[in-house]
Each structure stands twice: as structure tokens, then as C-alpha cells.
Design a protein around this nucleic acid. Structure first.
Lengths: 203, 203
DNA sequence: CGTATATTGGACTGGTCACTCCATTTTGTA
DNA sequence: TACAAAATGGAGTGACCAGTCCAATATACG
């Protein structure tokens, strides 16, 4: 499908990463449309020819940013995200997420969610990449709940897959409202509501 | 605070509304940054001087669009949104929301939520307007749950205000995931999870 | 009817943006 | 060391875009 990528020198790799990191930061703060390639050049300390040497166009830079932010977001939740196989673990993860959000003063929302909202209907390739990002996130939550279910800790009627989706959606909606109101209360309410529901399904 | 608004002729009023409706449609489909004032002019069939006769600048047009879409979104959920004072009523509202989303093929997400994500951190006035929009939405949900609580239909431990926030967040997150995946399943899972939680708190 | 005011047409502008081009320097490797 | 490929500098380009300007027309109202 894709042609062979041009070989990258160590220096080239470093430059490329600097560009992606700078772009990710700016696009998170101002959105993709609000970030010009010139802004990225200035922030990364590179010239136009460098940026376009490593990326075919702005959209392919955006795809690299999606990959970069996906790793950053999932990493920031580790190790809590890795073992969500008890209500206590889920509540601990909730606390980790809230700490991250508080640290940045409720600004910025979810890096992946913001990109998803902006790009879902205007950039099909970005959308596909974002679907994959959310699949990984959802998968991590689902694995924990499935483990609980397998061990018989959840009632038979409970559907761990749907609960995982419910938790992820509550997180995204809670983050949006927290960003808008500059207050973590909506995020706390959202997560606690779905986590209480999980708890109520424990035998 | 604001100067007296220039008087509008019937014709002027109609022109102004045509501009707002066209802008709302385009900004919903492509985002605010993705919609140029020239696009709006073409879609509304007006000239640049007309647009800038009725709106000081693009940002004030955006504020009008927020008001317009807020009414549209809340209206689309009536009368279901008005009487959410039983679990059955909440589930009926859920079905109304899902019908709306299905009708548009899961494209577009939430008109207000999308604007919130794009504007929360870059346009303080827009953010304030969007906070008000969500307050109205949340208020409608909260009123229903409070009525249930007042009538003693919810357990004493239940907090109707937090539940209302949880429902709104689940809706927003579910809409985002549904938009991204082009599938209503995430929205159904999100809403059902929080609604089941409400149901589990009924005496 | 007459006049003040609202509405409209449409060309124009200064700035920004994504992206290109070509020359030059640096790096990997035989 | 020599050479091919990679990396970089930086000016340039055509398109687009928010907002302006002034003249012309339509409308309200005394």
C-alpha cells in the first residue's frame, strides 16, 4: 500500500520527533485548524523544508500527532489502566485521571477526544486512526471487567463490554464538561455514576 | 454593557436569520474554523456587507450560532426532555435521542458538544454561552430526577443532581464515540449504563 | 411625499496559510 | 577519503480569508 519510507538518520529521527512533539502540544492547545504549519516550525525550531521533508502534508503530520498523543494518554494512566479487575482498582484509576485533569487546571479536555471531535467528519484517515486509539483504550478497560466477570465477581446479567464502553463514554463526556466549566465536578459525577453501577453489579 | 442594537426591519430580521441558519448548518458540519465567512455568504445568499451589517465579526456570528443550535437541540428533545421524572420517561427520552442520531447516520455528533470542544479554550465568550446552554440541558434532566427524589421514589443516598450530570456526560461521551465509530452502540451502552444506575436507585 | 435610516452590491486589502523549489551542508558508508 | 543520500536554509507562490469601504437602493414613518 504505502511506499518504502525514506531512511532516517539519528539526527533526522530526532528532528522528526521534535516536530511531532511541538505539533502535538500546539494542536492540543489550539486545535488542528488553529495550528499553522508555521507555528509548528517556530515551536520546533525547524524550517519549512524540514517539516515537509518529514511529512508529506499537514494531514500526515496530524496522523503522527494522533499516534503520539495516543501513547501519551495511555501511558499517563499506567499502571492504573492495566489492571482494572476490581471495583477498588477502577476507583484508583478514576483518582489517577482526576489528578491529571486537576494538574492542568481543567484546561484542554481529552487530547484524543478533542481531535476526534474536530476530525471525525472531515478527515477519514484521521478518523480511522482515532478509532484505533479508542479501541485500545476501551480494550484496556474491557479486559479488566472481563476478568472480573470470568472470575464470577459480576452478576450473570452484567455485560462487561457494555460497561467498558459506558465508562469510556462517561470519561469523555465528563472531560468535555469539566473543560467547559473549568471544574472537575462533572467528571467526578460522570465517573462515579458509572463506577457505582459496576459496583452494584458485583455479587 | 452592550450598546443599543440597531433596529431591524422585518426584511433585515429575515436576512439575519438566514445568515445564522446557514452558518449553524456549516459550522455543525465542518466546524467553526472550517467554515469561512465567504462560505456562509454563499450558503445564505448574502453579500459580505450584509453579513458584516448584522454581525460585528465572525466571533459574534458564532455566538448567534450557539444560541440558535441550543434552541434547536433542546427543541428536538421535547417533549421527552420536559418530564424526566420516572425511569420509563428517561428511557423514552433515550429512545428519542437515539432516533435523532440514527436519522443522521451518526454523523455530526452533538451540535453543542462539538462547539464546546472546539471553542472552550480559545473563545471565552463562546465558552460562557456554551456553559449556559449546557446548564439548561442539565437543568431539564435534573428537574425530573429531583421530582422523583422529592416524591421519595429514589433512595435517600441517591443524589439527583450528580445523576443528572452523569446522564449528560454519558450522552456527550456516547455521542462522540458514536460519531467516531459511525455506530450507535457506544451511545446506547453509555446511556443504558447510567439509566440502569438510576433504576437501581429506585426504591 | 420626503427624509432619515436600514439594507444591499461588490470590489478591494492586508495578512495568513499550506506548500514548493533549489542551493548548500551534513551524514552514513564503501 | 569519496560519493550518494539525507538534512537543512530560506526565499517564494498562489490561494484563501476576515474584514473594509463607499455608493446605491429599499423601507419606515411623520
Amino acid at each position: 500500500m504505502s511506499a518504502d519510507p525514506p531512511r532516517l538518520t539519528r539526527k533526522g529521527q530526532a528532528t522528526r520527533e521534535r516536530i511531532v512533539a511541538a505539533a502535538a502540544q500546539l494542536m492540543y492547545e489550539r486545535g488542528v485548524a488553529g495550528t499553522s504549519t508555521e507555528d509548528v516550525q517556530a515551536a520546533a525550531g525547524v524550517s519549512a523544508s524540514q517539516l515537509y521533508h518529514y511529512f508529506a502534508d499537514k494531514r500526515s503530520l496530524v496522523r503522527a500527532v494522533i499516534a503520539f498523543l495516543t501513547e501519551a494518554v495511555l501511558d499517563a494512566q499506567q499502571p492504573a489502566l492495566g489492571g482494572l479487575d476490581s471495583v477498588a482498582a477502577v476507583r484508583a484509576w478514576r483518582d489517577v485521571v482526576l489528578a491529571v485533569v486537576r494538574r492542568r487546571g481543567c484546561e484542554g479536555g481529552c487530547p484524543i477526544g478533542s481531535l476526534a471531535s474536530e476530525l471525525a467528519d472531515v478527515d477519514p484517515e484521521a478518523r480511522a486512526a482515532l478509532v484505533e486509539s479508542f479501541d485500545r483504550w476501551e480494550g484496556a478497560i474491557r479486559d479488566g471487567l472481563r476478568a472480573m466477570h470470568r472470575r464470577g465477581e459480576l452478576r450473570d446479567g452484567a455485560d462487561p463490554d457494555r460497561l467498558a464502553l459506558g465508562i469510556l463514554a462517561a470519561l469523555q463526556g465528563g472531560l468535555l464538561l469539566a473543560q467547559l466549566r473549568r471544574d472537575t465536578a462533572p467528571l467526578e459525577a460522570a465517573l462515579d455514576t458509572v463506577i457505582d453501577q459496576v459496583a452494584s453489579l458485583v455479587r
